[in-house]
Amino acid sequence: MNTLRYYMPRREKYLHIVFWCLLESALWLTLVNWLLPLILKSFDGYALFMDQSLAVRWCVAFLLMAANTLISVIWYNWEENKEDEQRERDTEKLAKEAELFKLRQQLQPHFLFNSLNSINALIGSRPQEARKMIQQLSDFLRGTLKKEEHQWVSLQEELQYLQLYLDIEKVRFANRLSAIIEADEAVQKMKLPALLLQPIVENAIKFGLYDTTGEAIIRIIARSEDNNLVIRVENPFDAETSTTQKGTGFGLGSVQRRLYLLFARADLLATESKENIFVTIVKIPQHE
């Protein structure tokens, strides 16, 4: 883009400026012609000089005025342009930050670095297990990168992917974490948007493990109800001290938003808690 055009007033604006400069210099000239003789009336020949130099003085006044005006026009335009550019840069920066944030979320750095740390520990004592975990972690990451958000996958595929995630978490937390998945064959073939379950299970593990100090059992139950795929994810939590499980819990905000964008319905994600079990229920309408 030619930024120079910002420094230039439009054509009609130029004429406008010239006209005003002419007018203002003429006004000045009239004023001077009236004032000076009053002050300097004692000098002989002054009146003659005044008359003869009229055109020259007008020219000088006009040039001065025009130069002055142009400088300020340019200065203001430049300032405006600078502001525009700043705004543009800010918008770009915001968009970039949002994208980076999303990428970072997809990568789950906390999970990734902790897994690498576990592998580091296993290499010394149990190299076979280390190797296995590297494999699982690679498959998991590949799955994250491969899938597109708008893609639909079978429940079977999504559960396999979840299993990788759960297996890695089990190595990290040893016997503190166990997971039970219930889904019969008919349900396995039902479809859901890719990577939809993972943040829900992640949320369940996070609260199951970080909110209690004992053993955490995560239960994932899939059923078919009125042509809907209904998935319940259960995790233990401490009703007394938990502050974040009230409402939908902040880990679930993005899931809610995605479901709304896909189905234009806000009633597909629900949570409930009974005693010390927190349940997240997600409903996915099936269409042919």
Binding site: N114, N117, S118, N120, A121, G124, S125, R172, F173, A174
Partner: peptide, 13 residues
């Protein structure tokens, strides 16, 4: 540390 393996690596070092 809540992860046993994370403690074991410190132990080893």
């Amino acid at each position: 540390d809540d992860e046993p393996l994370a403690r074991s690596i410190v132990n080893e070092y």
